[in-house]
Amino acid sequence: MPKRARRKSVFLNIPYDDEFEDLYLGYIVGLTQLGLTVNAALAIPHETRLDAIIQLIEASDLSIHDLSRVELSGGVPRFNMPLELGLALYHSRKTRGKHLVSIFDRKPNQAKRSTSDVNGVDLHIHHGSPKHLMIALRNIFRQPGDITTVPEMLASYRAVKRKLPVLRKLAGGGTLFAAAIFRDILLAALVEAEARKARRTG
């Protein structure tokens, strides 16, 4: 029996706030459709959060850090995303680059100005739009056979987004940044990918 390829996983370091919902959904749908397992620090109690994040980074083959909302929140800078980026960069160095680190931002040069030490790290710009996010993800990754296209990823994103009210209800309502609905979105994206593949292959 042929040995199955180990499933690649990505640590997703993004802001968890309502204004980021579209891109959050875009990341989950896009990465899932490319065949990656998404690890995110959702529903982890504050006391054990740092340990859990380090474990997630170490368990992932690569990490994506979105610095587009590193800004003041209630007069206090949001340092969590750069902190997690620092942990991932250290892990990447420790593993001699086996752990790939990619940074995403809204505008060109913003991350280079706010966190100038990251100059030289793989940087991608999504302009705050799911379409540009999908294009950037497609540019970073190559699949066996190179099948998933940006229009397909976007169509799946829209399909899952249309179903969000029902998925939210199924998970008991409330925020999208919770473990249960995160898993549901992930599965919904795969169900959609499967349907699209069936249509494509007839």
Partner: peptide, 12 residues
Amino acid sequence: EPYEITNPVPTP
């Protein structure tokens, strides 16, 4: 260089 994802997309 693009990062190679060696595994296929998992089924739901």
